[in-house]
Design a protein around this nucleic acid. Structure first.
Length: 736
DNA sequence: GCGACATTGTTTTTT
DNA sequence: ACAATGTCGC
């Protein structure tokens, strides 16, 4: 007894000691729902990990009855690793994973209850888009009137709301009616092909628990504690799933930061944080406000900026560390100059003994990276760009996987379409049209339809041969790889499908890198670990295919060289760097034009800026350009209103030495502590609606010059984009 | 079926 | 500007 108590004490110490007061409070609360408002850099992952350790080692909770959910695989892996480090044992049997990963696991275990095919395959968003496109074609809708992207967005939004096509009403709206038709046909195609998209994983997982009382009871019995990371990012479906699973007995431990909610545009609802206290009873709220990352100056700037948002739960970051250096602001002439400035600062940093991978160059949109890249290359500065195409999303990889999927599930029409003529084997549009038609008539898979047509000799001789060849190939492949270990199966597919040979013939570096990637796929298969706990009774092949869809892999290979890190603000969330460049701080770019139009969006942009600022540990440098070439035309942007919202005394301005260029800017009304005096009183503002005698109505999208040289760019509703000289154009202003 | 031209769309990204 | 599609003629 004594020994046991002593041991327990030791465990408690290691769990509790490294924590501050607030963290400790969160980690040790009794089993009630807890909402931890964790500011940037306040040790949120640490709190989650220590909470789990606390539950297991102090409260004696079995690891088997803990469910921990994150959004990204990276976060899930990190959490798992840190739990194992802290506990010193493998986190066996613990359900730690992403919403999608856990939903997938649930559906594989209960595919019958979920009314799925046992060998269902996962569609990633690319696959989904391709399928939607085909559905629209199949319904003989005009593709220009029914953009596939919009239809995809519609379908995903409905799934997020948990709405099925059969429960929808068009309310007499013809547009709605067609969209429902598309959704409906898409859904039917998925059902027949055994295909499940990302939204479907979540929705099915919700439905299967909701509609099976016994199953729900089982899981409520099993999971006694649920922990959620990045709670502000949950969408409606994810939140409903959590609530359903938690019922009113199981305490949810949610960690999030309303100020870092930056995914509203893809369905995340910040309101879930606010609803937490209403939806769960006897909740406890803990704020983590002590920041262990940034200097006092950086935190003051962040606090001042985010104070401009309304309806916050409220939080003020503080540190007991150094005040640190001032923020710096460089107003460049143009984007070239901006890149040059950043390059020089990188050089200085390195000369002073700093590491390049301690530096991040952040920007609002990916297109901005190019100028920086070109400049870094010219200056001989190694860099790494995050984001972009990921390994399992590459065309050659998806093609090889499609062959594999067809051997696993012959009904997978999405994969059939993908590789039927890849490499080219003489099966063209005409032939496929016939096959699709037949499939529709028979309500069968494309492969079956092709078989059918072949048997009935309904192809022309040439097409028939080609189709027969393809079907035989598929047949042969699925038989041959049955007995092979996974990586040999991949190797076999690569060579026998003709893909390898095909890409080998492709000229230039592109072909070579595709061949390399196909070889890399074999290594990925060899390195893939089948985990019985996760994959259950799936075949290794199915498990690998699911893994490929759910974990798209890295964008670029591992960088061994010490290089500058470049990424969008969105992908920087969760990371930290001693030196951060926040670039392109211009109105229209950041906040982005698209977000300026709807009111709620601006606050999200501000949160994005807040995220950017709080990435910096020691020094933060802001840059903007007076003139920027975007989509082929020069724009004269004002500095971002967010720069104006930062306290003057925290900023040191570094101005170009040469006199300013001729362009004068337009302005929007800015907060009172606006730091940029705008002297002219231009009669029009960005966003104004105007009418022109010849061109009709439009919106002012940019302005330059002043007096008699003043020009505005107007995006006309009918007549496109035009630059007009105000003195002659005789524009009529319609609204502010 | 393939290469040459035209058209289009350009915020953010995970799963 | 520019890349990534889509269309058209051979």
């Amino acid at each position: 007894m004594f020994v046991k108590l002593f041991q327990m004490d030791a465990d408690i110490t290691s769990i509790i000691e490294p924590l501050n007061e607030a963290q400790r409070e969160a980690v040790t609360t009794a089993s009630v729902p807890v909402l931890v408002l964790a500011g940037a850099g306040s040790g949120k992952t640490r709190v989650l990990v220590h909470r789990i350790a606390w539950l297991i080692q102090v409260e004696g909770v079995s690891p088997l009855s803990i469910l921990a959910v994150t959004f990204t695989n990276k976060a899930a892996n990190e959490m798992r690793g840190r739990i194992e480090d802290l506990l010193g044992i493998p986190a066996q049997g613990m359900w730690v994973g992403t919403f999608h990963g856990l939903a997938h696991r649930l559906l594989r275990m209960h595919w019958q209850e979920a009314k799925l095919q046992q060998n269902f395959q996962i569609l990633d968003s690319q696959d989904q888009l391709a399928l939607v496109k085909r559905i629209i074609k199949g319904l003989e809708l005009d593709e220009s009137r029914w953009p596939h992207k919009q239809a995809q967005w519609f379908i995903n939004a409905r799934k997020d709301e948990g709405v099925r096509p059969q429960n929808m009403d068009d309310g007499g709206d013809p547009v709605q009616r067609q969209l429902i038709r598309i959704y409906s046909a898409y859904h039917a195609a998925c059902e027949r092909g055994g295909l499940v998209d990302f939204g479907e994983l979540l929705l099915r997982a919700l439905e299967v628990l909701r509609d099976n009382k016994a199953l729900l009871a089982h899981y409520r019995e099993r999971f006694r504690h649920i922990l959620v990371d990045e709670f502000q990012d949950t969408n409606t479906l994810q939140y409903s799933w959590l609530r359903l699973l938690a019922g009113d007995k199981i305490p949810v431990f949610a960690v999030g930061d309303d100020d870092q909610s930056i995914y509203g545009w893809r369905g995340a609802k910040i309101e879930h944080i606010q609803r937490f206290n209403k939806d769960f009873s006897e909740t406890q709220m803990v704020r983590l406000e002590q920041n262990y990352r940034s200097t006092g100056t950086i935190l003051s700037a962040a606090n001042a900026l985010i104070a401009n948002n309304e309806g916050r739960l409220g939080k003020n970051l503080w540190t007991d560390g150094q005040e640190g250096e001032l923020l710096q602001l460089y107003t460049a002439f143009n984007e070239q100059d901006e890149a040059r400035f950043v390059g020089e600062r990188v050089r200085t940093w390195v000369e002073q003994g700093g590491r390049r991978d301690d530096i991040a160059v952040l920007y609002r949109s990916n297109a901005q990276s190019r100028v920086f890249e070109e400049n870094f290359i010219a200056m001989g500065i190694p860099y790494r760009v995050y984001g972009g195409l990921r390994f399992f999303e590459r065309a050659e990889i998806k093609n090889a996987l499609a062959y594999l999927r067809l051997t696993a599930n012959p009904a997978d029409d999405a994969s059939f379409e993908r590789v039927v003529n890849q490499p080219p084997r003489g099966i063209g549009a005409r032939t496929m049209e016939l096959v699709r038609e037949q499939a529709q008539v028979d309500d069968s898979s494309l492969q079956q339809a092709a078989q059918q047509l072949l048997a009935q000799k309904r192809f022309t001789a040439r097409a028939g041969n080609a189709v027969a060849g393809f079907l035989q190939l598929l047949q042969k492949l699925s038989e041959e790889i049955k007995s092979l270990p996974l990586h040999e199966a991949v190797e076999h597919i690569n060579s026998q499908s003709g893909l390898l040979e095909h890409y080998g013939k492709e000229k230039g570096e592109k072909g070579q890198s595709r061949v390399d990637n196909l070889h890399e796929l074999i290594s990925a298969a060899r390195g893939f670990h089948f985990d019985e706990a996760i994959h259950g009774e799936m075949s290794p092949l199915d498990a690998f295919l699911a893994h490929a869809a759910l974990e798209a892999g890295e964008g670029q290979g591992e960088a061994w060289e010490d290089c500058v890190q470049m990424m969008t603000l969105h992908s920087a969330k969760g990371l930290e760097f001693p030196l951060v460049f926040l670039t392109g701080m211009e109105e229209g770019l950041f906040p982005h034009q698209m977000s300026l139009e709807e009111p709620g969006r601006l606050e999200e942009e501000r949160r994005l800026c807040y995220v950017g600022i709080t990435r910096a540990r020691q020094q933060l440098i802001l840059t903007c350009a007076e003139r920027r070439r975007l989509h082929g035309t020069d724009r004269y942007n004002l500095p971002s209103q967010f720069v104006g919202e930062l306290p003057n005394e925290l900023i040191q301005e570094i101005r170009p030495q040469i006199p300013r260029s001729v362009g004068r800017f337009m302005h929007k009304p800015q907060p009172s502590h606006q730091r940029f005096a705008v002297e002219d009183d231009f009669p029009l503002q960005l966003g104004d609606r105007v009418a022109h005698q010849k061109f009709g109505e439009g919106v002012v999208t940019s302005c330059e010059g002043n007096g008699s040289h003043a020009r505005v760019e107007v995006q006309f509703d009918q007549s496109g984009n035009k630059w007009l000289v105000l003195a002659y154009a005789n524009l009529e202003r319609l609204s502010a």
